[in-house]
Amino acid sequence: MRRGTRYGALLGPLLAGGAPPDLVERAARGLGLPVRGRYAVVVLAAPVPEGAEAEGAEADGTRWYWCDSRDGYGVENGYGDGHVVVVLLGAVGAAGAVARLTERGAGPGGMSPVVGSLAELGAARRLAGTALLTCAPGTREVVRLDERLSTALLVSRPELSARLLTEVFGPLLALVPAERAVLVGTLEAWLECGGSVGRAAVRLRCHRNTVFNRLRRLERLTARSLSRPRELVDLVLALDVLRLSSGPT
């Protein structure tokens, strides 16, 4: 990974979006980058830990260009102390780049979908910022937008997200926090275990009937059934809103 003051000067107009072709060509020449290639943008909400920005290109050909988000084209919605990273992807692809950042404790952060040219960095930067907003409070995760599309829709429309949470989880939110946490945690475990009550019981270290009873109570409180696909979607989306608003349960 590499960082320098000239990266922001050359990449800033591209990250802001709408850069004319001559500025795209100038950035490509100045940084030795192809105009067309497999690029992604990462938006990081906080300064990276010391040593996270290693010098040089990766062995697989991945190249990193770090820019300070405080230069004005960085993070929206209150995130202003981190970095924007332009990545020319190598053989490991986007998943490998995210893994590298995660290993170095560089989160929370969001990665854009892969784009095909430097001219698309502005759109990629905006999408990376949306991906960042899907990270739960207090986490250090780095996430790809392509793996968080439904949650990204929620954070893009906060007024509808708030309405969804109230409509679906209203009675649940009225419970005392400890009681609510038990039901929410059971739902999360059941979903992570592929809808298996037995596997969820093992994970939660309780009897399967306990899991079953908790889920039935959650269904009664929300007036939604886990066996009806559309109602299950409501529950899953409301759970995402709750996770983003309150952090891990």
Rank of each mutant, 00 (worst) to 15 (best):
P108F: 01
G105A: 02
L133M: 14
D234C: 13
V24I: 14
G61M: 09
A99V: 13
F169E: 09
T166V: 11
M111K: 12
M111E: 00
G96K: 10
P229V: 02
T222H: 05
V48S: 06
S246T: 15
T102Q: 15
R2L: 03
G74P: 04
L215S: 04
G82C: 08
V43L: 06
L149Y: 09
A27G: 03
M1V: 11
V211Q: 10
L15I: 04
P177Q: 00
D234V: 05
G195E: 01
G138H: 01
A162W: 01
R216W: 07
E231D: 00
T186A: 01
D81W: 11
D22E: 15
D68F: 07
V48Y: 10
V86P: 00
D240T: 10
V85P: 00
P21G: 05
A57S: 14
G8D: 01
A200W: 11
G17A: 05
S150A: 15
C206P: 10
F212C: 05
P21A: 13
R224C: 02
L44C: 13
N77I: 10
F169P: 05
R2F: 12
P13N: 06
A152E: 04
P47F: 00
A46G: 04
P137S: 03
P158C: 07
P177I: 04
A136K: 13
G109H: 03
R205Y: 12
A91T: 08
T249I: 15
P177T: 04
V42G: 04
G247S: 06
L154D: 00
L226P: 10
Y73T: 02
A119E: 05
E50W: 09
V75G: 15
R144S: 05
L132F: 03
G90S: 01
R70A: 15
P49D: 09
E167F: 13
V241M: 09
L23K: 12
L44F: 08
S225K: 00
A123Y: 08
A16L: 11
P47R: 13
E76K: 14
V42C: 10
L218C: 07
R6P: 09
L226N: 08
R140T: 13
D240E: 15
S112Q: 04
T134V: 08
D81E: 15
V115F: 01
E103Y: 01
A46Y: 13
T151Q: 08
P34V: 00
R205V: 07
S112R: 03
G198I: 13
L232V: 12
L235Y: 04
R163S: 11
L127A: 14
T102E: 15
L132T: 05
A200L: 02
A99K: 12
A152H: 06
V48C: 04
G93T: 10
T5L: 14
D240P: 10
V197Y: 09
V211W: 11
S196H: 03
S196P: 11
E167C: 05
L173A: 05
R230L: 15
A97N: 06
G122I: 02
P158E: 11
V42N: 10
Y73E: 02
L33Q: 04
R224T: 01
L127W: 03
V41H: 11
A16Q: 11
